[in-house]
């Protein structure tokens, strides 16, 4: 494994912000850290960046302390906008590139490519403060990955981005991943996490509720989301054995089952009435899993 945390703990005076957190991230993998506000995501990132020293536990990079990883190999997108407001976009990116020891000449080419890619090329001489929030976020993102880091830390990268730009961001992240960059990010948008991440860590008040592959988390609950379309009645469906709840959404019924194996008898019962337009059995979405986990006792 490339990046790993073992029993990582951070205590501020008498407040436990991160509590025995462990996770592993492999090379060329995207890792998502999810949790509510104040769960300890940013604190964890700061420890990875050596901005904060862990109270106990350790963070390793290729079996050695993370402090051995060259600073220039790390990219960081802070949670809040971290740009010089009075600096033109191009100079800004040049500065951050040089800060990671990249030569000016190479950077010039990279910068135009990235600006082109993110549709910012006309804005390159513009002062950063005059850009819209989403455009600033894009500049911030370019600044964090212009130097092709081996480890990229993105704290809430999607905040303020519209779907098109969020898509651009995802593409950029995926292409970096293919080049072997270890990417670790936090987000409140579960759809993005679900789409991008291979592994996740679910944090609640500094404690890890789950750490591993998304599929493994889903398997814990099994396929208990059932979607049906057909000439049925809500009460009729709710009365079926194994059904926990029913909600009607347009002409669709969404059923929550107690167990995955309750689905088969339901199918057989409904099939007696004839043709079923739609019958699909799915895992819970990450969003649902998240609320379940966080609302729950935390197992």
């Amino acid at each position: 494994m490339t990046l790993s945390a073992e029993h990582l703990t951070k205590r501020f005076q008498n407040f436990l912000a991160v509590d025995h957190l462990s996770f592993k991230v492999e090379e060329g993998e995207i890792f998502g850290l999810i949790g509510q506000n104040g769960a300890g995501k940013t604190t964890t990132f700061r420890m990875i960046l050596s901005l904060l020293a862990p109270t106990s536990g350790k963070i390793n990079w290729r079996d050695h302390s993370i402090r051995g990883l060259e600073r220039d190999q790390i990219g960081y997108l802070p949670e809040e906008r971290g740009l010089y407001p009075k600096m033109p976009v191009e100079d800004q990116l040049m500065f951050f590139g040089q800060l990671r020891s990249w030569p000016k000449k190479v950077l010039k080419k990279e910068i135009s490519e990235w600006l082109e890619r993110f549709d910012l090329i006309e804005k390159r001489k513009v002062l950063t403060e005059t850009l819209s929030k989403g455009n600033q976020q894009k500049v911030q993102l370019i600044a964090s990955l212009i130097h092709k880091p081996r480890l990229l830390i993105l704290d809430e990268p999607f905040s303020g981005l519209d779907p098109v730009n969020a898509g651009l961001l995802k593409d950029a992240v995926v292409s970096l991943k293919k080049e072997g960059t270890v990417i670790i990010f936090s987000s409140h948008r579960m759809d993005h996490v679900e789409e991008l991440c291979d592994h996740i860590c679910l944090l609640k008040k500094g404690k890890s509720l789950f750490s591993g592959a998304i599929l493994d988390l889903k398997k814990q609950y099994g396929k208990i989301n059932l979607t049906i379309r057909g000439p049925y009645d809500k009460t009729e469906l709710a009365a079926l054995p194994g059904v926990q709840s029913v909600t009607k959404e347009k002409e669709m019924y969404r059923l929550r089952l107690h167990h995955e194996h309750d689905a088969r008898p339901i199918f057989q019962t409904l099939a007696k009435n004839g043709f079923i337009e739609r019958f699909s059995l799915d895992y819970l979405s990450l969003e649902e899993l998240f609320t379940r986990k966080v609302a729950g006792k935390g197992e």
Binding site: R46, L51, R71, I74, P78, E79, G82, L83, Y84
Partner: peptide, 12 residues
């Protein structure tokens, strides 16, 4: 205030 310091300090 703008968190640039976090970036600079973590890279130098």
């Amino acid at each position: 205030d703008s968190r640039i310091m976090e970036i600079i300090i973590s890279s130098t």
